[in-house]
Simulated scan of single mutants.
Amino acid sequence: MGGDANYLQIGQVAERTGLSLKTIRHYDEVGLVQPSARSTGGFRLYTATDVDRLLVIRRMKPLGFTLEEMKQLLETLGTLDDGAASGPQRDTAAADLRAFRNKARESAERLRKQLAYAHEFTELLSARVSPQESGG
């Protein structure tokens, strides 16, 4: 069990990523991010690399990426990090990465607009509520 020191249990992963246990288990079940090991008791054990992959997914989720797109991006990043990947594989991965970046930028801009509208709305409500609160 001494080798387990470099592994994190699912609760620790949830704490570090801000993802629920249910979400982390779901990502394992669909093959998105599977734990690198299992304890002798069958508990999921994650490495720092696994946590990094989950953080990538957490960042993609609010931008509207599908599970399939998340899986594809993780594979793309793996190809770019793989020193043994061929030139054509790296070129394809780089093109895919640019497409993901463009989609992320478009989604982020949409979210910024929605957030601006939400801020305007809360300001409107605050302006209407404040006079009533101070006059009561």
Rank of each mutant, 00 (worst) to 15 (best):
L8G: 01
L8V: 00
Q9I: 10
I10W: 06
T17S: 13
T17Y: 03
T17V: 03
L19N: 07
L21R: 15
L21C: 14
R25T: 07
Y27A: 08
Y27H: 04
D28E: 15
D28Q: 11
E29N: 13
V30M: 13
V33S: 10
Q34D: 01
Q34I: 05
Q34L: 11
P35E: 13
P35Q: 11
S36D: 12
S36G: 15
A37M: 04
A37Y: 00
R38F: 05
R38S: 04
S39M: 08
S39E: 01
T40S: 14
G41W: 00
G42I: 02
G42M: 00
F43H: 13
R44I: 02
R44G: 03
Y46S: 09
T47H: 01
T49M: 09
D50P: 02
D50K: 09
V51R: 08
V51Y: 03
D52L: 08
R53V: 00
L54E: 01
L54I: 00
V56P: 01
V56N: 10
V56H: 03
I57F: 05
R59T: 06
M60K: 07
K61E: 12
L63G: 05
E69N: 09
M70G: 15
M70C: 15
K71F: 05
K71H: 11
L74G: 04
T76F: 00
T76E: 04
L77Q: 14
T79P: 01
T79M: 05
T79C: 14
L80K: 09
L80P: 03
L80M: 11
D82A: 12
G83P: 03
G83Y: 03
G83A: 12
A84E: 10
A84F: 02
Q89L: 04
Q89R: 13
Q89G: 09
R90F: 00
D91M: 10
T92E: 10
T92Y: 00
A93C: 10
A93I: 00
A95T: 15
D96I: 01
L97S: 08
K103M: 07
A104G: 11
S107I: 01
A108V: 00
E109Q: 13
R110T: 08
L111E: 13
K113N: 08
L115D: 07
A116F: 09
A116I: 06
Y117F: 12
E120Q: 15
F121I: 09
T122A: 13
E123W: 07
E123C: 08
L125I: 12
R128N: 09
V129N: 04
S130T: 14
P131G: 07
Q132L: 13
G136V: 10
